[in-house]
Amino acid sequence: MDIKDHIRAIPDFPKKGILFYDISTLLSHPDAWQVAMGRMAKIVGQHRPDILVGIESRGFLVAAPLALKLGCGFVMARKRGKLPGKTVEHEYDLEYGTDAIALQDDALAPGQRVVVLDDLLATGGTLNATIELCKKVGGNVVGAAGIIELTFLNGRSRIDVPFDSLISYDA
């Protein structure tokens, strides 16, 4: 099955000039979603993770079912102010300004094998920030993965752990 057949491209979203790759059409097709998660499980399982960290919000849709499938834990990486309790944050640069990603301070145990997941790798800024945050709290980040990689944006170059995706777009 070609997973690309189940990804919808939406021009000029969220702003003019951007082609948005929408996974909602993949999520709504049960056979394609099952195949995608099976393939992701093979990729991610090779890292022998203890815990999967999903990046807000579509990364949750990838990481949570994979955690169930692989028998490991799931942790949410969220924007500043979105998690209850004590959190640890990592601030990172955007094209115009900064943003921050947060984990609950007890979400990862020191030395746990972590794989960070999102739906799509674009420029790599948020994925890199989440990897750095996981390391900051003692996680052993052994890999990262996503359904889609936009290779023309070269986001992989910002990441210092192995990265895998199911599909890629070159333009």
Rank of each mutant, 00 (worst) to 15 (best):
K86M: 09
C134K: 07
D31F: 05
S168W: 07
L70H: 02
G45V: 07
E89N: 12
M76A: 15
G45E: 08
A41H: 04
L120C: 13
T151A: 13
L26V: 02
R78K: 13
P84A: 01
N128L: 11
L121I: 13
P110Q: 11
E132R: 15
V141R: 11
I167A: 11
D106P: 00
L121M: 11
L52G: 03
T126A: 11
A144I: 09
G97E: 04
K4V: 07
Q34P: 00
R156S: 10
R156Q: 12
K16E: 15
T98R: 14
V115F: 06
D99C: 04
L166M: 12
P14L: 10
I148H: 07
S168K: 14
I10T: 12
K135W: 02
I23V: 15
L121S: 13
G81D: 15
C134N: 07
G139Y: 08
L19Y: 03
A144V: 07
D170Y: 06
L103C: 01
V88G: 00
I18H: 10
F13Y: 15
D160C: 04
G124A: 10
K16G: 08
D31W: 02
S28V: 03
T25W: 07
F60P: 06
E132F: 00
R113M: 09
L27P: 07
V142N: 10
T98E: 03
G146F: 02
H47W: 06
G125R: 12
K42C: 02
P30C: 08
L66S: 03
R80P: 00
K69L: 13
R80T: 00
V88I: 09
D2V: 00
V115W: 06
V44G: 05
D105E: 15
Q112L: 04
V116N: 09
S168Q: 15
A100Y: 00
D105Q: 13
H29M: 04
G71Q: 10
L68M: 15
I7M: 11
D118K: 10
A32F: 04
P14W: 09
A67D: 04
E95K: 11
I51R: 14
L66C: 02
R58M: 09
G155K: 05
A171P: 05
R58L: 09
H29P: 05
N128T: 14
V44K: 06
L94C: 01
L150V: 06
A9H: 08
L153N: 07
H90S: 02
V88C: 01
C134Y: 01
Q104E: 13
I148W: 06
V62C: 09
G85K: 05
E56P: 04
P30N: 10
L120V: 14
I147P: 07
G111W: 06
D106A: 04
A41E: 05
M37I: 13
K42I: 03
D31A: 15
N140H: 14
R48V: 05
I148A: 05
Y169T: 11
D5C: 04
L66G: 03
H6M: 06
T25M: 08
I55D: 09
A144N: 07
K15V: 14
R113W: 05
D106E: 12
R113N: 13
A107Y: 01
Y92D: 05
M40F: 01
S168N: 15
R58N: 11
L127C: 08
L121H: 09
A107E: 03
A102T: 15
I167K: 09
Y21T: 12
G125D: 11
Y169V: 14
P49W: 07
K79T: 00
F60D: 09
A171K: 14
L121N: 13
V88D: 02
K4W: 04
